[in-house]
Design a protein around this nucleic acid. Sequence first.
DNA 1: AGCAGTTTGACAGTACACTGTCACTAACGA
DNA 2: TCGTTAGTGACAGTGTACTGTCAAACTGCT
Lengths: 178, 178
Amino acid sequence: MTKADGASAELAITQLILAVFKLNGRLVAAGDRLVGTLGLTSARWQVLGALVLQDGKATASDAARVMGLTRQSVQRLATAMIGEGLIEPTANPRHVRAPLLKLSSKGKAAYAAAARRQSPWARTLAEGVPIGQLASTEALILTLASCLEEQAAADRAQRQRGRALTPTGTRRAKKARA
Amino acid sequence: MTKADGASAELAITQLILAVFKLNGRLVAAGDRLVGTLGLTSARWQVLGALVLQDGKATASDAARVMGLTRQSVQRLATAMIGEGLIEPTANPRHVRAPLLKLSSKGKAAYAAAARRQSPWARTLAEGVPIGQLASTEALILTLASCLEEQAAADRAQRQRGRALTPTGTRRAKKARA
DNA sequence: AGCAGTTTGACAGTACACTGTCACTAACGA
DNA sequence: TCGTTAGTGACAGTGTACTGTCAAACTGCT
């Protein structure tokens, strides 16, 4: 590991990051165009997908974990989608206030329609790139994502320690933040 | 190209897309943590970077083109950053209402500080991945982004045609949308 | 010069995602 | 059993990005 290696890695990763930002924006826009006339957006479509994968056995928080978003973000989407009749809350024997979320018939229809549109779109998009690289690219991206996830968790723990300063066992500060 | 190829490409690209969404969220969050105490955010930091690259010869719209965002988004950031004293508008001989944007001394200091923090952070992040793949991954991502860009441009043109129906030469509808 | 078309800044409205907080529920250990 | 800890929904506030729209400024063509 020479100095040059570190510097070139730094440059390469910075450019990769900017590329990810750019692609993300385009993907969201493309998704919105693809399913917009179905009463969906990229984000809501993703929520439906997560719920389908969990087969009706997921709460909003569960879906958030699968999607890698905060539970608040997914809650907001889920509440809106319940209001629109895309999702139906079902009694959860394990938690009174955290209903299991299932697709309504309307939600299933919308998701199926979205899948029908996405299929040819995805194939067209894949034509533009060397197919063999798709999987390795995904792997690299997920590796970076989990590195950042660890980092974020470490930072959170750091801030926690800074705030509490006592392991909550002998906490004497409970309202000292006011 | 067999059927199986198309289907596997479809699956691979779908998973890649979800991975990009995930990484994007983590990157934005990491960037915010990295430069938050400098009075910056990921987005504002990027604007400063774009302006540095253009060396003070860019308007907000120019920066937007470089960054791959809409000009409205960048305008909003630029206006806010002018208010915060990070950026200074300068007379533009080529356009009265479109000032050239330059970093103020405060903006330069913030950008330099951000760069100092980013450097070790980027190297650490790069350690977790095979360095040789960074560049090829970036290339693939940019390829996808430009495919989507073309698609978006085509869709816009489509909608334009649908709305106008006359090549603006004999337009008779100018207020017919009300 | 005059007019059509384009570019630009500004404003409005919508949608997402994050942090921070609070109250309530569930699970676990003393 | 009781109290601590973790999980969950809901609400508030902030920041970002998109589309749509308008008026002013610029460009090019006639």
